[in-house]
Amino acid sequence: HQPDRTTPRLATAAAAGEGSARQAGTMRSSEAMELLGFPPYSRPSPSEVKAAYRKMVMESHPDRFPEHLKSQAESKFKEVSGIPVQVLRLKLSSIGRLTDQCKALLIRDENESIFDYLRTDTPSNIG
């Protein structure tokens, strides 16, 4: 049995005849929060998101799993690393500490993944 590794999320939704197939790139904020292990309506700070992301990556990277669990882990990894940063609803006070370049990045593209965002989170742009 192959989990949804070979069937994209969209295709499964369409095949199952769900009323509204999820559009590419849309993910609800609560879903993203749950994926990262936060309560659905929390507003974490960037450093909390970063720590959660690190933890999830370690817990879902396929290299860390035996053969029979790899594909399941892989799907989760893809979901986590593909979270669009826009849906995270980060604490505004924390965003205030980011550099202008980083803020520009946050509003640049709704499909910016969490990974793209986190790689800007370095000593030089977060105090």
Partner: peptide, 11 residues
Amino acid sequence: NTTVPARREML
């Protein structure tokens, strides 16, 4: 420079 494994969709 997207992390892999990765899955992305576009319309």
